[in-house]
Design a protein around this nucleic acid. Sequence first.
DNA 1: TTTTGTTTGATAGCATTACTATCGATGTTC
DNA 2: GAACATCGATAGTAATGCTATCAAACAAAA
Lengths: 245, 245
Amino acid sequence: MAIEVRILPSEELSLRDPQQTDLGKRIICQSIELLDEIGLEAFTFRKLAERLGSAEASIYRYFSSKHQLLLYLVNWYWDWVHYLVNQAVAQEHSPYAKVRAAIGALTKPFVSNPAVDYIDEHLLHRVVINEGSKAYHTKSVDKENSKGLFLGYKTLSEDIADIFLEINPDFPYPRTLATSLFEMAHNNPYFAEHLPRLTDLKADDNLSEKMEAMLFFWVERLVGAEKEVAAPSENAVTPKVSTSL
Amino acid sequence: MAIEVRILPSEELSLRDPQQTDLGKRIICQSIELLDEIGLEAFTFRKLAERLGSAEASIYRYFSSKHQLLLYLVNWYWDWVHYLVNQAVAQEHSPYAKVRAAIGALTKPFVSNPAVDYIDEHLLHRVVINEGSKAYHTKSVDKENSKGLFLGYKTLSEDIADIFLEINPDFPYPRTLATSLFEMAHNNPYFAEHLPRLTDLKADDNLSEKMEAMLFFWVERLVGAEKEVAAPSENAVTPKVSTSL
DNA sequence: TTTTGTTTGATAGCATTACTATCGATGTTC
DNA sequence: GAACATCGATAGTAATGCTATCAAACAAAA
């Protein structure tokens, strides 16, 4: 059974679906690498075309601007994380186990998707950490939001928020907590690497585990169900996935 | 008594001190307005010069790039918030009252500074909310960090983190909590206005008060001193300041 | 097998951006 | 009034962010 995970919440994310053609897939693949190497500011379609052995104009046939390309990539990421979260949560029953599972997916969203070989999830994760917030910190947010280009982020947050409400229906800040955890999961690795005095975590090998513990600490204290404070479900935090994306 | 608040942690923030000349002050003042109007991406020194009735080259004598200008403004903001926090905290004695005071400054950093007439703190606050994170999400972070260009953010966070440790010396995540509160104080108003499904707060008149309550809720639950949970200190949350900056 | 249409690569071009350099005019200082 | 710094003005250059055109390559349709 191949679950169809929506990658395009809106046709506005590209001029033509890059997943349908060879060039399109290479654009996605190489743009992630190039973004990771030189950053969004220095990234240009000219450089990408050169790297692809293709022409600038060819890329413009898929994406009208580098901002649209960024939105595409970030949406892909949000959908991927959402999928991982759903997958992990579905295997759990107690609310706290669900939270653990969701946090596991948030802190380790770089498991690779065997159904999509042209995207390096590890690289994409790093790119989103570095450039992700630029996708919505723009003068065009409202216009793009009305076209549904941020649905990926919103539905992901709301699904996570719902788990908090499952634990404690009176918790007053489920959405803020969900987005905060998401942002923390990106900011802390970044800070640990570049501005270490802004975080308590070290850029170790086991950063993910430390962060997982920290985010769970956050939820435990904030959502604060009085019973069942430490649900000892250790399994299935980051399940290996094998469905097609 | 005029307290000297450091605005330039490093000479690297400008080519020449804009506070010393009339043109310099007008550059600061108008750049904030222009950034607020059209955003960092569309902002150019040419447009700014036109608005100033000046020449592009004249601006380049103060700032080598718009990125340097952004760093200057963001540092000004960090120092200003830091000053407000110190000011507010100094008047309190109990740790929780200090937290309340600090959060008050974080959520309402737009009180105006009578000693600096060419900066509109309200506008600057909005600009930092919209563009602030772009100051350190760059490929040049490490280089700039080694020059001390982010000291403002780091010392602010650490001072706030120290208050948490005062409450609970064993709290394991003081810095992460400090930066999280700071980022939440920026993200939530932004989300409330542009992506409302990402937050629980409404873009009301009393957003600041709601946010203040929320951030205090965060600290209360997370830092979690068992005694003295609700310190009823209501005064001096955002003091009017009159020292020279 | 021709025809038609689609995709691509190649080239050109254009307005804007991000600067740098030069050069007088206008102060200001001593 | 000589020396100096500041500023506005103009010019120029390399890179950016696109748009347009055209022909080769290929696939689908007739």
